[in-house]
């Protein structure tokens, strides 16, 4: 379970998050929606440990452990995965090698045995197939020369292989066509399990047609101003954020 209490964070002394309260029980998928600049990506970065952001108050724990006290890689080992809005390119770094290094680092941290190259490749190939991704994506350099859609799918492939317990998807649907969107949604749906939860940041109802959330939260000006069921997303799609934000003000 992810528990966030009064979380406040700033960048370069500019407050972005101004007291977030949010609980995501195990097994649930929650959507975060909200206008541009409301702090959605900041929330994703703060939860995953990006150092540029200063946490100025509040707490965030995952399954009882204090997330904010951990290094990014320790959070990854604890099961936190961030699907980046703009995935980073690593020139010369082979995708499969990168993923195996990451997976084995996480397995090591959890006291599990490492996978050798053959075992890993078998796993990676079957996941790639399930996500309808060309196998050569594994051989290419991490995100280098990938189209926008390929980068997003590569994030989902990484997620499928690393098997997180808390997935944070930061606008993974942006820039995707309908087919790719469905692949992303299927990828997350496939991970659904009693011990898996996800925080899905999105602008669009579209993704949520395929990836039905248990709860929807609206983030504006660094606070959650409204929460509801899946219907809330449809309402927002129809009426826009302005009214909800105005009501909350």
């Amino acid at each position: 379970m992810l528990e966030i209490r009064g979380l406040a964070a700033s960048i370069n002394d500019k407050p972005i998050l101004k007291g977030i309260d949010l609980t995501v029980p195990e097994g649930e998928i929650h959507a975060i929606m909200g206008p541009n600049g409301s702090g959605k990506s900041t929330l994703a970065y703060v939860l995953s440990g990006r150092e540029e952001f200063d946490v100025t108050g509040g707490s965030a724990s995952f399954n009882g452990v204090d997330l904010l006290a951990m290094e990014p890689e320790e959070r990854a080992a604890a099961g936190v995965f961030l699907a980046f809005q703009a995935p980073i390119e690593l020139p010369g770094v082979n995708n499969a090698n990168f993923l195996r290094t990451a997976l084995n680092a996480i397995r090591r941290a959890r006291g599990e045995s490492e996978l050798d190259a053959v075992q890993f490749l078998k796993l990676a190939r079957s996941e790639a197939k399930r996500l309808a991704m060309p196998e050569d994506m594994l051989k290419r350099n991490v995100n280098v020369g990938f189209s926008g859609g390929e980068k997003k799918r590569n994030e989902v492939l990484q997620m499928a292989i690393l098997r997180p317990r808390l997935a944070i998807l930061d606008e993974t649907d942006s820039g995707l066509d309908i087919d790719a969107l469905k692949i992303v949604a299927d990828g997350v749906n496939a991970l659904r399990a009693p011990d898996f939860s996800a925080l899905v940041i999105t602008h669009h109802q579209r993704l949520l047609d395929h990836l039905v959330p248990d709860r929807v939260h609206v983030l504006a000006h660094g606070r959650i101003i409204r929460s509801g069921g899946p219907d809330l997303a449809r309402e927002l799609e129809k009426s826009g954020y302005a009214q909800v934000v105005a009501e909350a003000a």
Binding site: G49, P72, L82, F84, I88, E89, L90, V93, T101, A105
Partner: peptide, 23 residues
């Protein structure tokens, strides 16, 4: 780049090693 690697579970030094070897 460093954060991306660390988010995937690599230590900072492993991340540097990986990026440098790629380079």
């Amino acid at each position: 780049q460093l954060f991306y690697c660390r988010q995937r579970g690599l230590s900072e030094e492993d991340a540097v090693g990986l990026i440098v070897n790629g380079f």
